[in-house]
Amino acid sequence: MDFQELEQETLRHAPPVLPWVKFAEWIGLGDEPKVVRGWVDRGYVPTLRIGKRLMINVELFRQQLLEAE
């Protein structure tokens, strides 16, 4: 799956942050969460750490996708 394949409607009603595994499920990669972890490790998606949890900053990611259009 490529970032451009993510539908805008999917991201429009997104929570502001999600754990990376839940983010993988949410975008349809629940059976391949390591793909999202690879994106995280390569810096392709914005993250933040809340306590011990690594979260995807969905709001910032959404904004970046909109700006890239």
Results as ranks from 00 to 15, higher is better:
residue 30 G to H: 05
residue 48 L to C: 15
residue 37 R to N: 10
residue 20 W to I: 06
residue 49 R to N: 06
residue 53 R to V: 15
residue 30 G to A: 04
residue 36 V to E: 01
residue 7 E to K: 10
residue 28 G to R: 02
residue 7 E to T: 08
residue 20 W to P: 05
residue 15 P to L: 15
residue 63 Q to N: 11
residue 27 I to C: 07
residue 46 P to L: 04
residue 35 V to L: 13
residue 32 E to S: 09
residue 42 R to M: 06
residue 2 D to M: 11
residue 44 Y to V: 07
residue 1 M to W: 09
residue 5 E to Q: 14
residue 8 Q to G: 15
residue 69 E to C: 15
residue 9 E to L: 10
residue 22 K to Q: 11
residue 36 V to H: 00
residue 56 I to N: 00
residue 47 T to H: 05
residue 41 D to K: 14
residue 26 W to F: 10
residue 63 Q to D: 10
residue 29 L to Y: 07
residue 53 R to A: 13
residue 17 V to W: 11
residue 14 A to W: 09
residue 21 V to K: 07
residue 69 E to V: 08
residue 35 V to S: 09
residue 12 R to S: 12
residue 19 P to D: 11
residue 16 P to F: 12
residue 31 D to L: 06
residue 67 E to L: 15
residue 15 P to C: 15
residue 37 R to Q: 10
residue 33 P to M: 01
residue 62 R to T: 03
residue 32 E to C: 08
residue 28 G to P: 02
residue 9 E to I: 07
residue 25 E to D: 08
residue 60 L to E: 06
residue 56 I to L: 11
residue 43 G to A: 04
residue 36 V to P: 02
residue 67 E to V: 13
residue 62 R to Y: 12
residue 43 G to I: 00
residue 24 A to G: 02
residue 44 Y to I: 05
residue 16 P to W: 04
residue 30 G to M: 04
residue 12 R to F: 14
residue 42 R to L: 07
residue 31 D to V: 05
residue 33 P to S: 02
residue 16 P to C: 11
residue 55 M to R: 00
residue 24 A to Y: 00
residue 16 P to Q: 10
